[in-house]
């Protein structure tokens, strides 16, 4: 691999990040990614704090979704993809040799841009992560289903129709169902890839409310286009541009007194 270490954009920026008392859940160190010959991520350095909400903002094509999808190695599905650098979880590199990708994904729930419930009943959707784990005991599944749906603020709406097809729900409900599915196996990290971009304002408000509730229980990384949303829900915010992490810090700082002019231009709407 002819990986040339790219010049660092800035020295570890975490100094103004809101530190969690429990430390970092994910530690991304000098991470680079290439699609074929074009480099999509350049030397990302970032510590995601445990139990906090971290938002990634930036214009389209800046690599924020790519970075998010590296965290549970969803990018493995893409042919011709290369990475260098490290993403440390509990002291081991998830791109290191001998990593069990399936076990990794079980520790990371993921919610996608468009609601993607499976063509099964609501109940089967929620307990799917447990089923693929080989858990068949009805009591455990029932309990998990209720807990996950309650956490996703969907229990009251769904409890009477657990055996109906999930595809019959509204878009907002489907997205909350996907969140319930994402947290059903009690992961450590919840990755959210623009979870509200396909939803109307009311459904968006519900999801944001939900993120507030989940904060503290899970480490949440959310990619969003919507700067107000990032400001509302996150503790720390990373601003990405052209594959580089321009600035990363406490959300208030990023939105009120960013250190870089690019960030300032973006958050004030001057470009992007």
């Amino acid at each position: 691999m002819n990986v040339v270490a790219p010049e660092r954009q800035f020295e570890p920026t975490s100094y103004h990040v809101k530190k969690s008392p429990e430390g970092a859940a994910l530690d991304i160190r000098n991470f680079n990614l290439w699609y074929g010959k074009s480099q999509a991520l350049h030397g990302i350095d970032m510590e995601v704090q445990k139990g906090e909400v971290t938002a990634l903002i930036g214009p389209s094509g800046c690599g924020k979704s790519t970075l998010l999808r590296c965290l549970n190695r969803m990018n493995d599905l893409i042919d011709d993809l290369r990475v260098s650098g490290e993403i440390m979880v509990d002291g081991f590199d998830i791109y290191g040799p001998g990593v069990d990708v399936i076990a990794l994904r079980k520790r990371m729930g993921m919610v996608f841009q468009k609601p993607n419930p499976f063509a099964m009943s609501i109940y089967d959707n929620v307990v799917y992560p447990l089923r693929v784990d080989g858990i068949t005991k009805k009591s455990i599944l029932d309990e998990t289903c209720e807990r996950a749906l309650r956490s996703a603020a969907l229990w009251d709406e769904a409890k009477d129709r657990l055996n109906e097809s999930a595809l019959g729900m509204s878009g907002g409900q489907q997205q909350r169902l996907c969140i319930a599915r994402g947290i059903a196996s009690d992961p450590e990290v919840l990755l959210m890839d623009e979870p509200c971009s396909a939803l109307d304002p009311i459904a968006t408000a519900k999801i944001e409310e939900l993120i507030h509730q989940l904060r503290g229980h899970y480490t949440i990384v959310i990619v969003t286009h919507n700067m107000q949303q990032a400001a509302r829900v996150s503790d720390n915010t990373g601003f990405m541009y052209l594959g580089r992490l321009i600035e990363y810090g406490a959300t208030e700082t990023i939105f009120s007194a960013p250190k870089k002019t690019q960030t300032l231009d973006y958050v004030t709407g001057r470009f992007g």
Partner: peptide
């Protein structure tokens, strides 16, 4: 992707 992200093989 949804299924794979749930840790399914």
């Amino acid at each position: 992707e949804g299924s794979l992200a749930c840790g399914a093989s």
